[in-house]
Write a protein that binds this DNA or RNA. Structure first.
Length: 495
RNA sequence: GCCCCUGUCGUCCAGCGGUUAGGACGUAAGAUUCUCAAUCUUAAAACCGGAGUUCGAUUCUCCGCAGGGGCGCCA
């Protein structure tokens, strides 16, 4: 068993120390997909005693923002996946922000041109747009038509000298390119279907393709674990590694998270912002557990496990390749499981920070309320509405709710009056004593317990659905409890 | 249009040539119960289709079909 594991590890990881990375681009809200991919990279790195790094791919000057970058850090920290090297903490292979590495890319792009593996292209954006439209109309293949690829050298030099705006494109050779995806097997592309991709934009910034290959090599990345959407650009990357004379890393393409309709997950059809999940009161450990479930499984089959055990058990051969539908209902269930299993003080802390937004709270009281609601909570934020009646001065039940199904306002009123009187005179204000008193009262009144209790419940909590009644009364205190019952009687009398 | 990936209950996973095709979420019914939850029990629910390989295919191969992704000076 151990031997087999070691063998698998050896073929999966090779000789070099494992180094993996996530490379989010700081545009918009931090995405669940980022956490999803981060999780698998993290688990793989930790399982193999390797490094997990964070690199910010901010080469799109139009869309990248510092704010978004900060949000990525914040979200990743919240979720609990810590990186060993990154823009905020540095590391031996920095800088880890691509906008700070421009000259590196420029140099490498020039090297490619010198090697004839890339070429300058002077086509205008307008010509390219027209080209695409033509191709679309003709239903022909898409992609750059190679117009500038065979410009005479003298002309290229003249244009460069004249300062003509240009980009550098990859000169895709003839033949075919394949790579071995560690979970999908060999994937092959005819080079004729691979575009002469732009590597260096006219603003001097690299595209993803160049930057990611150069950085992965320079940062000694051994395994590229990324989303499925990258499969079709992988041949470009392989071609780049080859052109540079570098060894390519191993590739693993994880499936894409899906909306209910199976399209790639999107914010129009599904919450995708990690901060949304945080603000809704999901626990990071539940989210991680849930994310792990869609793409990986434990040998023994259990579906509740923590990060630590995932790291221990994680191997690539149990990674799935089919696109999982993001099922919020299952996440909710899992979240509830974690809430129920959490130690009380810890849960109190989370509730305070999340649901209570760090408002000043009576810690002791919070701790006392938790047992009444924790097994009913699916999200941390559920705490607030579920316990509102315990914090408010009064409640506002409807007259209709106060009357049991087969009762009348008069009978309900009589029952509540008796209850108020009994509770008022109760010697011991504790939940067992209150319960005993209430049950006795039902007998005395000749009522069904559930009917009596329901009237009291509505009177005291404000509605027909609530945490356990007697514990609620105890927490609320005699004064408030009785006052609420009397107020309800008044309400019934009023009509 | 071209290329690539994927295809087991509604959903997420298990299965890795021979199984009564298993678990979880959800759903339904019941038990418990002061309501709602939680908990427990039970039930319904799936191998995309067709060829081939084989004594035997959910499992291997091929062809269809379906879903998804890609085809940007975005990542």
């Amino acid at each position: 068993m151990t031997d087999q594991t070691n063998q698998t590890d050896r073929t999966e990881t090779g000789a070099r120390p494992v180094r993996v990375r996530i490379a989010p681009s700081p545009t918009g809200d931090p995405h669940v997909g980022t956490a999803y991919i981060a999780l698998f990279n993290y688990a793989f790195a930790r399982h193999n005693g390797g490094k997990f790094l964070l690199r910010i791919e901010d080469t799109d000057r139009e869309r990248s923002t510092k704010e978004s970058e900060r949000a990525i850090f914040e979200a990743l920290r919240w979720v609990g996946l810590s990186w060993d090297e990154g823009p905020d903490i540095g590391g031996p292979f920095g800088p880890y922000r691509q906008s700070e590495r421009s000259d590196i890319y420029r140099k490498h792009a020039d090297e490619l041109v010198a090697k004839k593996a890339a070429y300058h292209c002077f086509c205008t954006a307008q010509r390219l747009t027209e080209l695409r439209e033509k191709q679309k109309a003709a239903k022909s293949d898409f992609g750059y038509d190679g117009f500038c690829r065979h410009l005479p050298e003298a002309e290229v030099q003249a244009k460069l000298k004249a300062g003509a705006p240009n980009v550098i494109r990859l000169a895709v050779p003839e033949g075919e390119t394949s790579f071995n995806d560690l979970v999908r097997g060999e994937v092959t592309f005819q080079n004729s279907t691979v575009d002469d991709q732009v590597l260096l934009k006219s603003d001097g910034f690299p595209t993803y393709h160049l930057a990611n290959v150069v950085d992965d090599h320079l940062m000694q990345i051994t395994h590229v674990i990324r989303a499925e959407e990258w499969i079709s650009s992988t041949p470009k990357h392989v071609l780049l590694y080859r052109a540079f004379g570098w060894e390519a890393p191993q590739f693993v393409h994880m499936p894409l998270l899906r909306n209910q309709d199976r399209s790639k997950i999107s914010k129009r059809k599904n919450p995708t912002s990690l901060l949304w999940y945080r603000d809704q009161g999901y626990l990071p450990e539940a989210l991680l557990n849930f994310l792990a479930l869609m793409g990986w499984s434990v040998q023994e089959g259990q579906d509740i496990f923590n990060l630590e055990s995932m790291i221990r058990d994680f191997t690539l051969d149990r990674v799935t390749t089919s696109g999982p539908v993001f099922d919020l209902q299952k996440l909710e269930w899992l979240n509830g499981v974690y809430i129920r299993d959490m130690a009380a003080p810890e849960l109190a802390r989370r509730v305070r920070e999340s649901a209570l937004k760090d408002q000043p709270v009576d810690e002791a009281f919070l701790l006392r309320t938790l047992p009444l609601v924790r097994e009913r909570m699916k999200k941390l934020t559920d705490y607030v509405p579920m316990t509102a009646y315990l914090y408010s001065e009064t409640v506002n039940p409807s007259a209709q709710d106060l009357v049991p199904k087969k009762g009348t306002p008069q009978s309900a009123s009589a029952a509540l009056t008796a209850a108020a009187d009994a509770l008022q005179g109760l010697a011991d204000w504790s939940s067992p004593a209150i319960e005993q008193c209430a049950r006795q009262l039902a007998v005395t009144l000749g009522m069904k317990e559930r009917d009596l209790f329901m009237s009291v419940r509505v009177a005291v909590t404000g509605g027909p659905v609530s945490p356990p009644l007697f514990e609620s009364l105890e927490l609320l205190g005699r004064e408030k409890s009785v006052a609420r019952i009397r107020a309800a009687i008044g309400k019934l009398a009023a009509g």
